[in-house]
Amino acid sequence: MPPLTDRRHAFRVVLGLLVPGLLLLVAGRPELILYAVFGSFAGMYGRLEAPRERLRHQFHGAGMLVTGVGLGTALSHGHVPAAGLVLAITAFATIGSLVTDRLRLRPGGPFFGIFALGATATVAPGLVSLWGALAICAGTAVWCMALGMSVGTTEDAHDEGLGTLPPGAVVHALRYALATAAAGLAGTALGLDHANWAMAAAAVPLAVVSAGEPVELAAVVHRAVHRVGGTLVGLMATALILLLEPSPTLLAAAVMVLLFPTELFMSRHYGVALGFFTPLIMLMTELAAPSEPVTMLVARGVDTVIGVAAGVAAAALVRGTRGITQEDRSRQWAV
């Protein structure tokens, strides 16, 4: 059983989604919960920090998420082709890597922003207006920040040189550029409907690499294996849920419920967390952009394999120069 601190944090994160999620259900718009989910990810930042430090990091995390949702929704409304989406996500991943390294965000890396941009860009433009999407995402993020301020912790705050790029940050950003571009191009070449999933998956193995440190391929491969294994288990769970043909309201409720175990296990066992996170992703995607379930599940599995392969390859090709400490490794607790 995860410790009490993890359970409290997971409860705070799920409460950040529960309130806006219920409001959407009352309004009769469960299909819009995708935008609230991305806003709720702001609550994942600053997990063990004091309220003031947590607010700062959640604000920065929220900025990345809202920006991702805004750009993705704008791309959707602009009917940007697949090649344009690959270019946009690659640029966002590269810049996002530099920004998150400079801000010392934990969870580290631009994964959540990449995910938000790609997912919202593939939603039909008629689902919600740009301002509506931004309002739901930003409103949820603000609510999560308010919750974050309400709970203290005994952990000391760490500045870690905020405001300066750590050594090797540019090289690390190049890893993200290489991995996401390769995954996106491969997915597009194969004719996959959700090449953005491959690009998001490509960022996952790189989250255990610290800027300026040499790559530990064993750790990168370990994270990649967890991503693939957890995703496959999650896809089987998704299939079972969809076989029951639940109503949109029940699907939205399932999304909210699944966020709790996802965050509860995220820092302890990434593979287990993915077993819950994957159906959460698939169900909110099905609500926002319904598709043939088997096709969607197969595409998700293939995209995951392509993405983590690209991430591992980028980590192997672009190496660092210094050793990483166990303290640094322990801070890479999520993504």
Rank of each mutant, 00 (worst) to 15 (best):
F59G: 12
G161C: 09
L15I: 08
L287Q: 08
L283H: 07
A42E: 02
E292P: 03
C137W: 00
R12F: 00
G311K: 00
P107L: 03
D328M: 14
R331F: 08
P261G: 01
V302T: 09
I241G: 03
Y270Q: 01
R300F: 00
L87A: 14
G184L: 04
G28N: 04
V257N: 05
A237T: 08
V69W: 04
F41Q: 11
G126A: 12
Y270I: 03
E263F: 11
H9G: 05
F276E: 02
L235P: 00
P290G: 10
L15P: 05
S267D: 09
V142W: 14
F260G: 02
G234R: 04
P279Y: 09
G301E: 10
L17E: 06
G109P: 00
T164Q: 15
P2K: 08
E245K: 07
G323N: 13
R268M: 04
A157Y: 11
D193A: 14
P167W: 12
I136H: 02
V204N: 04
I33M: 12
V225Q: 12
M199N: 09
G61C: 06
E263M: 10
A203V: 06
V13K: 04
I89A: 08
G320S: 13
G108C: 07
R56A: 10
I241T: 04
A116N: 01
L297Q: 12
L117Y: 01
W197A: 04
P279R: 07
D156I: 13
G118H: 03
L317E: 07
A316R: 03
G275L: 08
F11M: 13
A91R: 01
L55A: 09
V26A: 13
L147R: 01
T164G: 12
R175C: 01
Y176C: 02
L283K: 01
V318M: 00
T321N: 15
R7C: 12
G139R: 07
T154V: 13
H269R: 15
E160D: 12
S76T: 12
I306H: 07
A310H: 00
P279T: 05
L280S: 06
S247N: 12
